[in-house]
């Protein structure tokens, strides 16, 4: 939030916060309902992560004001997202590429 945020703007924000809360609650119900269908793992994973990503983005965008945040914050976050992806992708793909197959527990 910039310094120029005034009480009037904040009142508008409050309505948005309530709407976002409604969306988050609804999405939570949806993701639990889908889980009770007991889909096979791949579609279940896709649906669950898709809904979680939407919920996470709503919180970040509106509650954490990322949607109107300054460039310097984005610059920091872009690198974080890239390195997080690197950590996931390279660790998992190195699991799938092992000489002599996978570790049997």
């Amino acid at each position: 939030m910039s310094d120029s945020t005034h009480a009037e703007d904040v009142k508008k924000h409050v309505r948005i916060y309530i709407a976002v809360f409604g969306a988050l609650a609804a999405l939570t119900v949806v993701t639990v309902a889908v889980a009770y269908l007991h889909l096979s793992i791949v579609p279940a994973l896709i649906v669950a992560l898709f809904i979680a990503s939407i919920k996470g983005s709503l919180v970040a965008a509106y509650f954490m004001h990322l949607i109107s945040e300054k460039k310097v914050i984005f610059a920091l976050l872009i690198f974080t997202v890239i390195f997080l992806a690197v950590l996931f992708v390279l660790t998992i793909s190195s699991y799938h590429d092992q000489i002599g197959g996978h570790i049997v527990p």
Partner: peptide, 25 residues
Amino acid sequence: IEVAGLYWHFVDIVWIFLFPTIYLL
């Protein structure tokens, strides 16, 4: 309060991912 809020929202986001990945999948 804004800074404390940012932290608290982050804790919420972590749970938003934890809940489906551990409870539902």
